[in-house]
């Protein structure tokens, strides 16, 4: 139907439309520009934070290489506390658990790992934290809790970790003197591809049942 309008009528219609919508158009464009700018600022802030955290992490790795446990523990705490929005914060907690374990603070180490397990969004990271937490529980003689952790339904989802879980399960059961179950768990670990001299040693030490 446009075809029936004359040139002047079309200009008229455009002008009218502009009059009615000028405010919302300007507002819309302005708003858009603001969002774009905001996004950019936010992005570069994110990047800056990540780079700062990365610098601290690099120091942490160096301290770890040099076996400076105290410095490493402090740096790992700093990562967790000051950069909570970055992935480095999780690494901080993992390292903090390592150094707390080495320093004998098993409860502290366990709590760090349980925090990761409860709050991380990455399933892989959760699976790892679960394994390590149960490992610390073994050292704390909280075998039942450890078993509960690695037998939990969510633990089954991390398929690649099943071999490691099974071996640790064997360790936990052995610590409870449930020898037969421990052997079954070790054999399962072996079946899942955890073929290691260490596992062989543990299996050998559990006497094979006399036939």
């Amino acid at each position: 139907m446009d075809d029936y309008l004359t040139e002047e009528e079309r200009v008229e219609a455009l002008k009218r439309w502009w009059k009615e919508n000028a405010r919302s158009v300007v507002f819309g464009v302005g708003f858009g520009a603001l969002i774009v700018a905001g996004w950019n600022v936010w992005q570069s802030r994110q990047q800056q934070t990540a780079e700062q955290a990365s610098g601290v992490f690099q120091q942490l790795l160096k301290a770890d290489d040099d076996k400076q446990s105290e410095a490493a523990l402090k740096l790992s705490q700093r990562l967790a506390d000051e950069f909570p929005s970055t992935a480095y914060a999780w690494y901080g907690r993992l390292f903090s658990a390592k150094y707390k374990t080495a320093g004998g603070d098993l409860v502290g180490a366990r709590d760090q790992l349980l925090t990761v397990l409860a709050n991380a969004k990455d399933d892989n990271l959760k699976a790892l934290a679960r394994l390590r937490a149960a490992q610390v529980m073994l050292a704390l003689h909280q075998e039942e809790e450890g078993l509960k952790l690695i037998d939990a339904p969510e633990a089954k989802k991390a398929e690649a970790y099943q071999g490691l879980y099974a071996e640790l399960k064997g360790d936990l059961l052995l610590s409870l003197a449930r020898t037969e179950e421990a052997r079954t768990a070790y054999l399962q670990a072996k079946q899942l591809g955890q073929i290691s001299p260490l596992l062989e040693l543990k299996l050998q030490d559990l006497a094979a049942p006399k036939s």
Binding site: F57, L94, K98, T101, L128
Partner: peptide, 14 residues
């Protein structure tokens, strides 16, 4: 990688 490998922990009991 090191965030995962180097943070592995081994309790003394083990």
């Amino acid at each position: 990688q090191r965030g995962i490998t180097d943070s592995a922990l081994v309790p003394e009991a083990q």
